[in-house]
Design a protein around this nucleic acid. Structure first.
Lengths: 253, 253
DNA sequence: AAAATGTATTTGTATATACATATTTAGCAT
DNA sequence: ATGCTAAATATGTATATACAAATACATTTT
């Protein structure tokens, strides 16, 4: 058994408990460990990873807090069932929303590329400056009329194949939700006069107030951000009972 | 030094790390440790609580994840600054919000009267047209500057004494919350150029985009509505970054 | 067969120890 | 004073050990 504490992987300095977390997440994400399944015991993980039981325990405990695992004393550790997303926040697909209203949905991919995170953004996403991230700008249209523009920054760690998706058939949101359960969400809303390039895409002028919704999503420690700008006059409904939302209500995509 | 592990407090079986967390939270909540302040070091907490450093460390680490503390290696542990909580959902009253920010809160009651519900409004509130309802328009000010205007329609059934309240001492929201638990809420937000009378009260011009929040509240079958218009430039945060204890409790008031 | 019992398994918590890493402080040389 | 260096301080991580507590399983008893 290893007793040395120093991290042997020379250059990188990722804590061992984090490496164990990644080890487990890899197996969950790859599908080797399906939701509901019992995973390795602490003892097995100790021999598999070569770290002490306390370190394995920490990794498992944190993944439990993050909602990825469920632990039962005396029984074992299980992959958590995916949470129904509505619990955290009602998130509809813009495509479905528009079709329901009888409109014809289409979307235009304005940007879909790798970028280096500027310091401000990197800080918000808890990354080192100029880390590689994925960026998408997508315009959603109703009968050819642009109604919202969303700009997303995605940590590649959470969606390595993000750039390879065909977002004309699946919305980014639908795709991301299919990957992992969201741990938590923060929304910031504001009313503003949009920047020129946004106004140009949404075909609005400089006197029309635009609603912006900034969303920050946590999946464990990994963060994604999304800023959506709505066509003036749009209304955005949160929550709801039985009453159909007023005309023109738009769901989040 | 104690070496016994067993919990001596006979009946209760609260883990020691949790007791340490409570110990710290007590000091924060009582105001003894103010936001930004450096708190005891791990070593000091060890002597204060009698548990081992690893246990203190766990308590501090968890409180950090929970957003109550900030830790800086080599420097110390500090009480986290309070996030500007959403005035939007009025978790705390707008009055408290403003005072906390150092401003001087005042409010102006613009309207507080009985009215007959116009058909549109009556339908929204599931009432017969021209039913008697209560209507209030209140302007909240920060150092004399108007920052938001809220217009409420209340079903007398839920708050028969609504018109008799002194809304300079208790906000309508606080009063209504004290009456009955809310069954369900629906929010609609929009960006718009406010109507002239609103612009006049909020002292804004016709080119400034205004954020409006329309809230419909159900208490059983009884409905109340509230429309709030925010001063331009306001931003509102919904939700925090830690997972709510029970899913769905985003903290809508 | 059902119930009770004991044992092994597995997670949960607590501690002492050790070393790593970042920050602050004090002392020293210039 | 200024700037550098070393020590002290404080947090961060890793391990071995120990016992507690809940569950699972096999065995015995009724």
């Amino acid at each position: 058994m290893k007793t040395s504490r120093t991290n042997n992987s020379a250059i990188e300095n990722i804590p061992r408990y984090q490496q164990v977390k990644d080890y487990i997440l890899d197996r969950i994400n790859s599908g080797a460990w399906q939701p509901g399944m019992k995973i390795d015991t602490e003892a097995e993980l100790v021999t598999a990873t070569g770290v002490s039981r306390m370190t394995v325990n920490r990794a498992l405990r944190e993944l439990t807090v993050e909602g990825r695992l469920t632990r039962i004393q005396g029984s074992g550790t299980f992959v958590a069932e995916k949470k129904p997303q509505s619990a955290l926040f009602e998130i509809h697909s813009i495509a479905q929303e528009i079709r329901k209203r009888g409109g014809k949905y289409s979307c235009e991919i304005h940007t879909l590329q790798e970028e280096k995170a500027r310091p401000n953004l990197a800080r918000a996403m808890l990354l080192a400056p100029y880390t590689t991230i994925y960026h998408s700008i997508i315009v959603h249209k109703d009968n050819g009329v642009p109604i919202q523009l969303s700009s997303r920054f995605i940590n590649p760690k959470i969606a390595p194949d993000y750039l390879k998706q065909d977002f004309t058939t699946i919305t980014p949101n639908e795709y991301l939700l299919s990957l992992a359960p969201i741990t938590s969400v923060e929304h910031v809303i504001e009313a503003l006069i949009a920047e020129p390039w946004i106004r140009h895409i949404l075909e609005i002028n400089s006197s029309e107030p635009c609603l912006a919704l900034h969303r920050k999503t946590w999946v464990g420690e990994v963060i994604a951000t999304c800023s959506t700008f709505y066509y003036p006059g749009s209304r955005y409904t949160l929550g709801g009972h039985f009453t159909p939302p007023s005309a023109g209500s738009i769901g989040i995509s």
